Simulated assay, not measured.
Amino acid sequence: MTDMDLDEALAEIAQIKERYVRDRAAFVRGEHLIRILSAFGSTPESVAAFQRVTEGLPPDPTLAFRKARNGRFCLDVAAGRAYRTEFQPFVLTADEDFVRHDSGKVRHFAEINDETQQNPTFQALLIFKMLVVNDVEIVHRPGLDYDADRWICTAFHTRTITTQELTGEPALEGVHSDGVDHTMTILLGSENMSEESAVTQIHDMREKNATRWSDVNPELAIGRWQHRHFLDSILIVDHERKHSVSTIEQRDVSVPARRDMLVLFTRRAAVEGHVSYAYDSIAPHETLPMEVKLLVPTHG
């Protein structure tokens, strides 16, 4: 597989962005994305290492079938840099189209570590996503600052597991949005999943929140994709399209099934009165610093 130079990568991203603007969602094959990321510093060695970073994840604070870490990053377009921000809790509410038993609960996740954030492939993913979404005109969410040339990105690193005793739900909340402007879901690996496991459906905003993936209105279905291979990715304009994900089923019921994902939630910073305002610090992380140059145009 050959690398891409910068001009070639930017041309490929322009085509992805065209689909994203038109459809408000886009699927990118992992094999294609790996080549694009090579223009932004990803190497074969970092790609291989990135396939192993999910081992050792700690338990999720509210979901028994999931292990998780998260980390916050400030994507400062005006300054042309992305950097790790200090530890902050995470909260998502029903008002943001996320209806689940822990909606509104302030959750404290273990932190994404250097093994992930210092990996050149992870850093290239931040660059790639910003090149796709930065100047896309979208419906604005209430309570976010669209005047500042800066984004908040929450990176979720998860492993969802199904066993004979436990059913893994990639989206237990059913039909939902993620309370952000742009969501990007990226497959890092899977094992022993059935062919119909973890299918992502894209829905019109009229679909009812919390509807189980199997009970959705087909007339409101817009798209259907499945992450099958390493770095297969889906981008969604989160306040214009809802989504759901089907259950993880075992191919061999005697062996656990797993699905490892990286999810990048990107939105403008919260303003006073927004539920996340208290958790939107842009102060750099003192013990887990990370910074990477952003190749993003500064016009909005």
Results as ranks from 00 to 15, higher is better:
Thr2Arg: 15
Asp3Ile: 11
Asp7Arg: 15
Glu8Phe: 10
Ile16Ser: 10
Glu18Lys: 15
Arg19Gln: 13
Val21Glu: 15
Ala26Ile: 07
Phe27Lys: 12
Phe27Arg: 11
Val28Tyr: 13
Val47Pro: 07
Phe50Ile: 05
Val53Gly: 00
Thr54Tyr: 05
Leu57Gln: 00
Pro58Val: 01
Asp60Val: 03
Leu63Met: 06
Leu63Tyr: 04
Lys67Val: 01
Arg72His: 12
Gly80Phe: 04
Arg81Ile: 09
Ala82Arg: 07
Pro89Leu: 03
Phe90Gln: 00
Leu92Gln: 01
Thr93Asp: 08
Thr93Lys: 04
Ala94His: 09
Asp97Met: 09
Asp97Trp: 13
Asp102Leu: 10
Lys105Tyr: 10
Asp114Trp: 04
Glu115Ile: 07
Glu115Trp: 10
Thr116Gln: 11
Leu125Asp: 05
Ile127His: 09
Val132Leu: 01
Val132Thr: 13
Ile138Tyr: 00
Ile138Leu: 14
Ile138Phe: 06
His140Gly: 06
Pro142Lys: 06
Asp145Thr: 03
Trp151Lys: 03
Cys153Gly: 08
Phe156Tyr: 13
Thr160Arg: 04
Gly168Thr: 00
Val175Gln: 11
Ser177Arg: 03
Ser177Ile: 05
Asp178Arg: 12
Asp181Pro: 11
Met184Ile: 13
Gly189Thr: 07
Gly189Pro: 00
Glu191Ala: 13
Ala198Lys: 01
Val199His: 10
Val199Ala: 11
Thr200Asp: 06
Asp204Ser: 06
Asn209Arg: 14
Ala210Thr: 14
Val216Trp: 03
Pro218Ile: 02
Gly223Asn: 15
Gly223Tyr: 08
Arg224Trp: 07
Arg224Ile: 04
Phe230Met: 12
Ile234Asp: 10
Leu235Phe: 15
His243Asp: 07
Ile248Gln: 00
Asp252Pro: 12
Val253Lys: 14
Arg258Asn: 03
Arg258Gln: 07
Leu262Tyr: 12
Val263Gly: 12
His274Ser: 02
Ala283Met: 02
Leu288Thr: 05
Pro289Lys: 00
Lys293Trp: 05
Lys293Asp: 08
Val296Phe: 06
Thr298Glu: 10
